[in-house]
Write a protein that binds this DNA or RNA. Structure first.
Lengths: 190, 190
DNA sequence: CATCATATAGAACTATCGTTCAATATGAAA
DNA sequence: TTTCATATTGAACGATAGTTCTATATGATG
């Protein structure tokens, strides 16, 4: 068992903070090595394992696996903090939430009209532009030139928008309901 | 008026795709300059403007402003226009939500005890292990060997757990309240 | 304990990086 | 147009990066 996962953890923290990797001498200091040669070997191992990529101009590039996180299960609560975390699955948040980057847009929730759907003011929703929406889906519609996040509903063959908050009225389009995109996810930072 | 904002745009795109900056010769090619000297000057300008930072070991580091535009533009730029969307790359949600990967863990919400806080069953919370928690924060505690996500509250100098759902009772620890970590964010997929 | 594979130390080496500076280009203001 | 400030070119320079190789350390396994 080698210490590469420890090194990887430090590299991840450093990169998350700075957005850059240090030079090999700096990495050595960071992970507690004394030689650049050792770093070079370690980087190659992490590259082989799919976490990093070394470009032709000798720069370290993070790969997908570099951003994977551990998804814990409730069951594991009793388990002591073992070094081996085989029970936690790797998980990439961006990959999980977004699969068509070019058609995907982020939008910040304003107001509490969707609060019963768990969308609080300040939450960011992930919107897939032009995706087909069904009744019951949360969508982004354009009403009076403004974007609105609401449930898409239908009555008597006519679509309308329903907020997830009884304090707000349902919205009926005059003639045509303009749908901007489908809400496929959301996130929030405390 | 100089072209720095164009250069910045290209650097942003490149960085969003790769997670790294090219060497100055590569930047020159990228932005259509013919000399590294010009790049050097341009980088200094962008650093002065607060977008970049040049470290003592001559590495280019993105600053906060470097990422600002993307979130901002996504929210606002989309509003007036509806079709014009070549400003590609989504900024990394992962980067936004997580800054200490090694101490960060994901946990799936079970049940609706935190539903008034906008945490629905199936949502994933981002937990910073061992982070200091204050009263009013949402935390992950270990109760009877299971993870529980609740508000941390205090009464008469004693900590207890409060669900965000009136149908659930408050939880008082027998002797010691074991806190696993602090909830710093959450996300959800529809 | 001895053996073997792998990881790290350390130093020497070369490529390449970013800096610098003078000359030139660009472009706004008068 | 002329003037003036700023941007860019291009080449030379020194510094430092990462590679490489050997020796040593580490640590697992028998």
């Amino acid at each position: 068992m080698n210490k590469d996962h420890l090194y990887l953890a430090k590299l991840r923290d450093y990169y998350a903070n700075t957005g850059v990797f240090p030079p090999y001498s700096g990495i050595a200091k960071l992970i507690g090595m004394r030689s650049k040669g050792g770093v070079s070997a370690m980087v190659k191992r992490l590259a082989n394992a799919g976490y990093l990529d070394v470009t032709s101009d000798r720069r370290i590039k993070p790969q997908k696996s570099f951003f994977e996180r551990e998804l814990f299960d409730y069951v594991q609560a009793e388990l002591p903090q073992s070094a081996n975390d085989t029970l936690a699955e790797p998980y990439s948040i961006d990959e999980y939430l977004i699969n068509t980057p070019s058609r995907t847009v982020l939008l910040t929730i304003k107001g509490d009209s969707m609060i019963d759907a768990g969308l609080m003011p300040g939450d960011v929703v992930i919107v897939k532009k032009g995706a087909p929406a069904k009744v019951g889906n949360i969508i982004v519609a354009i009403v009076d030139g403004e974007y609105t996040v609401k449930y898409l509903e239908a009555r008597d063959g006519q679509y309308y928008l329903r907020p997830a908050n009884k304090a707000y009225p349902e919205i009926y389009a005059r003639d045509h309901l303009e749908i901007f995109g489908l809400v496929v996810g959301s996130f929030r930072k405390y």
